[in-house]
Structure formats: C-alpha cells, structure tokens
C-alpha cells in the first residue's frame, strides 16, 4: 500500500527541503520505490539539494497542464534507481496548480510508488493547500525556536481543520546539544510538550548537512549523527520501532552519563 506524505513547517528555512531529500533517499535505500515532488512552484530547490538540477526537462506544472506525461517529467536519481524527482516549475507561481489537480496527480502516482513525498512551500497560502491536498499524513519540521514552533502550531491547527484530518508527526531539526545543556535552547521534550504531537525524529545541527547540500548528495545513512537521525526517521516511517538516538554523540563520558535524550 502506498502512502502520500507531505513535509511541511509553516516557517521557511527550518529544513523542509533537506528533510524531504534525506527521507526520500533513505526510503529508497530501504528498497522502497519513492517519488519526491517539489511543490514550491517559483522557488525550485529540491533538485539542487538532490544534485539533479542539470537533468530537468519537464516540471510539475507541465504535468498538471498535460504538456507531458508524469513519467516524462520524473528524473531518476543518480545513486538510487528506485528514487525519482518531479521538479517544480521555476518561472510560474503557486496559482498554476489547484489542490484538486495535486490530489489527482498523487492518486495516480500511488499506482506505481510506495511513497510519494511532497516538499511543501513555506506559508499557509495556496502552495500549502496544494501540497496537503492529496497527502495521507504529514511530517512537521520545526526547530527549537519560538517563531518556528508558533508557526508549526498553526500548521497543526490547519491540518486538523482540513476535511481529511491528517496525522502529523514531529521532526525537531537543528538541535544544538551544547546550547540545550546550558539551558539556552528548548529541549526536544519541551518542543514536543508544547506542540503535543508524536515525535518521529530529532536531527542535530550538523555541519555535515551543509557539506552534503553543497555536494548535492543527501547524507542519510552516513556515519554521522544527522545521517543516522534521518535514517531512523525513515525506518520509523516504514513501521519499524527504532529507539531515539543519543544526540550527545561521542563528546565524552560526562555527556554520555546524562543520557537526557535517550528514549525508548
């Protein structure tokens, strides 16, 4: 059975596109057939994060307008043959697509893919409505900052108000354990407590993310905390029970002793 998942946040710049790229790649590594759809029309970026920017011929708007078949617009990933990208249009705007058209498209793609993952634009306007229209569930990305959490709360309200009530799971991104330890950053538990939805993953602020984005190769599954955190999210999406990572990493005995963020 296939699943349509929207990656959303409300606020911009919290890591939706990075999360989409890594979760999509991770699911492909778990031998799922995956298509990623960039729904941020006018501000195309998922192609860049995946390193596929030079291969775009057709885009999402071409598919919706019937200028090409979905198969013609989908780009096969460089590394995983079961991962595809349906890129967004760069020279159009959000009104080029309607929620009904998006739902029809995702429903058609269900026939062929295990996971259809939508990278949602920031904001709560039409781009957001388009992205959530066909989704079964949402991954809500936030950072431990007041503005990102307030916006995330608004998104939870909008997802609940949607006619097809959508389950949302929380990803707390860009955690800096050094600041958490000093009490100068909200903890994962704080964020979860405020938003009151299930946590599906916590990703540390890791410079490897910047490096992998520079190179256009998602780091999911690689031997660092962020890579492991993303892979764990993917395994939870496919239904495995995975214990939460100790984000304190290999920083020494004292930080290991605290074990504050180890959950079972």
């Amino acid at each position: 059975m296939s699943e349509v998942i929207v990656v959303t946040s409300g606020k911009g710049g919290v890591g939706k596109t990075t999360t989409t790229a890594n979760v999509g790649t991770g699911l492909a590594m778990l031998n799922k057939k995956v298509v990623l759809i960039d729904t941020d029309i006018g501000l195309r970026n998922l192609d860049l994060v995946l390193g596929l920017e030079n291969r775009i011929v057709y885009n999402l708007v071409d598919v919706v307008e019937g200028n090409c078949r979905p198969k013609q617009a989908m780009i096969k990933d460089k590394r995983y043959s079961n991962l595809y990208l349906l890129p967004s249009a760069q020279t159009r705007d959000k009104s080029s697509v309607t929620p009904d058209q998006m739902k029809a498209l995702t429903d058609e793609l269900r026939k062929e893919f295990d996971y259809i993952i939508l990278d949602c634009p920031a904001g709560i306007e039409q781009g957001f409505q388009n992205a959530i229209a066909g989704a079964d569930r949402a991954l809500l990305v936030t950072t431990p900052e007041v503005s990102a959490i307030r916006d995330a709360d608004r998104i939870i309200g909008l997802l609940e108000a949607n006619e097809t009530k959508k389950r949302a799971d929380l990803i707390v991104n860009r955690i800096r354990m050094d600041m958490v330890k000093k009490g100068d950053m909200m903890t994962i538990e704080d964020v979860q407590d405020i938003l009151a939805i299930d946590l599906i993953g916590a990703v540390p602020d890791d410079e490897n993310i910047v490096i992998s984005t520079n190179q256009g190769e998602p780091l999911v599954g690689s031997d660092n905390l962020a890579g492991q955190a993303y892979m764990n999210i993917c395994r939870r999406i496919v239904g495995e029970e995975v214990p939460f990572l100790d984000l304190n990493g290999k920083k020494g005995v004292i930080s290991k002793l605290t074990g504050l963020f180890r959950k079972n």
């Binding site: 100068d184 407590d193 405020i194």
Partner: peptide, 19 residues
C-alpha cells in the same frame, strides 16, 4: 531563568491565545 525556559513559557502562553 535560562533562555530556553523563558522561550517555553512565552510560547505556552502565546499558543493558548493563538489557538
């Protein structure tokens, strides 16, 4: 108060009126 706790308290109050 640690700024993390300040943030949490401010958000909790704010979100009640937002909601």
């Amino acid at each position: 108060k640690n700024s993390g706790n300040v943030a949490k308290d401010r958000l909790k109050l704010l979100l009640v009126s937002d909601r």
